[in-house]
Simulated scan of single mutants.
Amino acid sequence: MAVGYLLMALAVPNSLYIGSMVVGVCYGVRLAITVPTASELFGLKYYGLIYNILVLNLPLGSFLFSGLLAGFLYDAEATPTPGGGNTCVGAHCYRLILLVMALASVIGVGLDILLAYRTKEIYAKIHASKQVKKASSNLS
């Protein structure tokens, strides 16, 4: 996702289209892996609650990044117009917010790697127990 945001921030020809496609695919993959991740890490007892907490970042991030931060940074880049509003034309208007979103994506990847490292032993135990069950069922 960070690559998509960086492509959009570079503002080379067609980078908006390619960057948007990369970010869109990443959001789709993220939504697809949330379901099995929630069930594997936390079980199914409180699955609905946990899943909703995991997908809460979509509207919350939308509000924080798009509503607040992007609006504030756009207004900082824009020039006042005679009618009392602000206007900004060009790639520089959103470059900083795209870089901030790329940084947030890199931080997210770091946290994903940390989660993978911390759950490595749990998955090894789950895999070993499945192998033992499979071996015992083959002996029967």
Score class of each variant (00 low, 15 high):
M21P: 07
M21F: 08
T34F: 07
K125H: 10
L49Q: 07
G43H: 03
R118P: 12
V89W: 05
L54A: 14
V25C: 05
L69V: 14
A124K: 02
A124P: 03
I126G: 02
A102P: 08
L58V: 09
Y123P: 00
A116L: 15
A38I: 13
V23P: 01
K133Y: 12
L6R: 00
D112C: 14
L114T: 04
V3A: 12
N57L: 15
A128T: 09
V132W: 01
K130V: 14
L98F: 09
G61R: 10
A128H: 05
V35L: 06
Y123Q: 13
V29T: 07
T119K: 10
Q131D: 10
F63D: 08
V25Y: 02
F72R: 14
G85K: 15
G90K: 04
G108T: 11
G4W: 09
R30V: 13
P82W: 07
F72K: 10
E77Y: 03
R30N: 11
L31E: 05
G83I: 13
A2M: 07
I122E: 06
M1E: 01
L103N: 03
Y74D: 08
T81F: 04
S105W: 00
A124F: 02
I113R: 12
Y46R: 15
L10E: 05
L73T: 03
V35P: 06
A76I: 08
L58R: 10
V106A: 00
F65K: 04
C26W: 04
L56G: 00
G48S: 06
Y117A: 14
A70I: 10
G4Q: 07
G83P: 08
A11D: 12
A102N: 06
S62N: 13
P59K: 04
V109S: 11
I97L: 04
Y117D: 07
P80I: 09
Y74G: 09
T81N: 13
G110D: 00
L73C: 02
G90S: 02
S105A: 10
R95D: 01
M8T: 05
F63Q: 08
S136R: 14
D112M: 14
R30S: 13
K45T: 14
L114G: 09
N138E: 13
L114N: 09
V23I: 12
K45A: 12
V25G: 02
T81Y: 04
L56D: 03
A102W: 00
R30F: 07
T34C: 13
L114A: 06
L60K: 07
G85V: 12
K130R: 14
Y94I: 10
I53Y: 04
P36E: 01
A102Y: 00
S136M: 15
P80W: 12
L6A: 01
R118W: 11
A102E: 00
V23S: 06
S15C: 14
A102I: 04
L111M: 07
A9L: 00
A91G: 08
V35A: 00
R30I: 11
S129W: 05
H127K: 15
A102M: 00
A116S: 13
K133R: 14
L96E: 07
G83D: 14
L56C: 11
R30L: 13
N138P: 15
L16K: 12
S129D: 03
A116H: 13
I50P: 01
L69D: 06
I33L: 15
R95K: 11
L103M: 05
S137V: 06
L16T: 08
K134W: 03
P13E: 04
S62P: 08
G83R: 10
Y117W: 04
S105R: 06
D75H: 09
S105N: 02
C93W: 01
G108N: 15
A128E: 11
G84T: 06
